[in-house]
Simulated assay, not measured.
Amino acid sequence: MAEYGNPAETDVRLPSLPQSARIARRMTQYVMLRHWALGPTLAEHAVLLVSELVGNAVRHTGARVFVLRAQRRPGRVRMEVRDPSRGLPCLMPVGELDVSGRGLFLVDKLSDRWGVDLGPRGKTTWFEMRVTDR
């Protein structure tokens, strides 16, 4: 992780390659469990959802790089994946036998809020999860 940086401290640029999902999962797990000392269930869900957002960025945007960012705010955490595409992701209905298309369905079910912010040079897809502040 040291090679890329800590997404809780800075924007982390990753190459738009399938293996970057593994790197993003490790970074998310580190941030949730070690950097912010949050629980394992929250970390597990965040890791899964980051993997889905990264997978969408890699598969659907044609970008060479994307950015991962983690933010801790009072009562919640926010994970963001930014890419240069302005194409919006779609939440599709999912059948029980479907083998693909479940990414945003999972994000919708496991996060407390999610969305997409369009910017002048692309979009940021994000999700938030509630946490208990100590």
Rank of each mutant, 00 (worst) to 15 (best):
E80N: 11
Y30Q: 14
P93Y: 09
T41N: 08
V94C: 00
L14W: 07
S51G: 15
A57I: 12
G39F: 02
E80Q: 15
R72T: 04
R69G: 05
G87W: 11
P74I: 07
L53W: 02
P93W: 04
P93C: 02
H45W: 11
V67E: 09
N56F: 05
P84M: 06
L17S: 04
L42M: 09
P40E: 15
E52T: 02
A57M: 12
F66R: 01
H60K: 08
G39E: 11
P40M: 12
L53K: 05
P84Q: 07
R25E: 15
H45M: 10
H60P: 04
I23A: 05
L38F: 04
E52N: 05
L17M: 13
G95S: 13
R26M: 13
C90T: 11
R13E: 05
V50I: 15
G75Y: 03
G75H: 02
C90D: 04
V67N: 00
D98K: 01
L68S: 05
L14N: 02
D98L: 01
S16I: 08
A37C: 12
Q29I: 03
A21S: 13
R78I: 09
S20V: 07
H35C: 06
A24C: 11
M79Q: 06
T41W: 05
M92P: 00
A57S: 15
H60M: 01
L91W: 06
L33Q: 12
V99Q: 13
L53D: 07
M32K: 01
Y30E: 12
L68A: 06
L48T: 14
Q71K: 14
R78K: 13
L97P: 00
Q71F: 04
H35L: 04
R73M: 13
S51L: 03
L42D: 03
A21E: 15
T61I: 07
M27N: 07
W36R: 00
T28V: 10
L91R: 11
E44G: 14
N56I: 08
T61H: 06
L53A: 10
G75T: 01
L38T: 00
E52W: 02
V65Q: 08
L33M: 14
R69C: 07
L53N: 03
P18I: 06
V54S: 07
G95E: 10
S16D: 09
V67A: 03
T61R: 08
Y30T: 04
V94W: 03
S16V: 07
P74L: 06
P15K: 10
R25G: 03
R59C: 05
R82L: 12
E44T: 14
G62Y: 12
A21M: 11
R34K: 13
M27T: 02
V54E: 11
R73A: 14
R22L: 14
W36D: 02
V65E: 13
H35T: 12
R59V: 00
R22S: 14
R22Q: 15
R34T: 10
T61W: 08
G87D: 14
E80R: 14
S51D: 14
V50G: 01
R26Q: 12
S16K: 03
Q29R: 15
L88R: 14
